[in-house]
Amino acid sequence: MSQSTPETTKKQSYTAEEIQAWLVSHIAEQLGVESKDIDVSQPLDSYGLESAQAMFLVSKAEKLFGFELSPILLWHYPTIETLSQRLAEESKASQSEIFEI
């Protein structure tokens, strides 16, 4: 059976701002802090985000965006700002099943 995706069933794309808001909300929730306390230009590891929490976040993002994310994504794009920009690019271009860096 063919896995081609007709234009009418194309996945929704998200802007960097929408992705950034989603990431801030979910990271704040995981860390037990207020969203306003998250600085999108600071490295995620400065908040003490552990590997298990990062993988949980990646898993939730995969469900939202509808494509697979590389497990090392957070290390290549270490801030919410850079990560959201990269995910927005991939969201717009998402034709494949696997996110490549």
Rank of each mutant, 00 (worst) to 15 (best):
L49A: 09
Q85M: 06
V33M: 15
G32S: 09
S2Q: 06
M1P: 06
K60F: 00
I80W: 06
E50L: 07
K92P: 00
F67I: 04
D37Q: 15
L44V: 06
A28G: 04
L64P: 02
F65V: 02
S13G: 02
L23G: 05
E7I: 14
L83H: 08
F56W: 02
L87K: 04
S94P: 00
W75S: 08
T79G: 08
K63H: 06
D39G: 00
A54Q: 13
F99T: 03
S84I: 05
A28Q: 04
L64A: 04
A93E: 11
G32A: 08
E81Y: 13
M55G: 00
F65C: 01
T9S: 10
W22F: 13
L74G: 08
P71E: 12
P71C: 03
S41T: 15
Q30H: 08
K92Q: 13
K36H: 12
L57C: 10
V33Q: 13
K36A: 15
I98F: 12
T82L: 12
F56E: 14
I38L: 10
E89N: 10
D39M: 06
I27D: 05
Q42K: 15
D37M: 10
Q42I: 12
S84E: 05
I98L: 12
K63Y: 02
S35Y: 00
V33K: 13
A61D: 01
S94W: 00
F67H: 06
E100D: 09
A52C: 01
L69C: 03
E81M: 07
M55S: 11
E100I: 13
F67R: 02
Q42N: 11
G32D: 11
V24T: 15
S13C: 11
F56H: 12
E89G: 09
K36C: 06
I27P: 03
E18K: 09
D45Q: 09
P78I: 07
T15Q: 07
A28T: 07
D45V: 10
R86D: 01
A93P: 00
L87H: 05
L74E: 07
Y14I: 03
E100Y: 08
L44H: 05
E18W: 02
A52M: 15
K11E: 03
L23R: 05
S2R: 06
L31K: 15
A52F: 15
E17M: 03
S59R: 09
K36M: 10
T8C: 04
S4T: 13
L74S: 07
S59G: 12
D39R: 13
Q20K: 14
K10E: 08
S2N: 10
T82F: 04
I80C: 06
I101Q: 11
W22G: 02
F99N: 13
T9K: 11
A61F: 04
I101S: 07
F99P: 00
I101A: 12
A88W: 04
S94Q: 11
S96F: 04
A93V: 02
S70A: 14
P6C: 06
G32L: 10
A16M: 04
I72E: 12
L49Q: 07
A21M: 03
S13A: 12
A61Y: 03
Q12G: 00
L74A: 06
Q30W: 01
T15N: 08
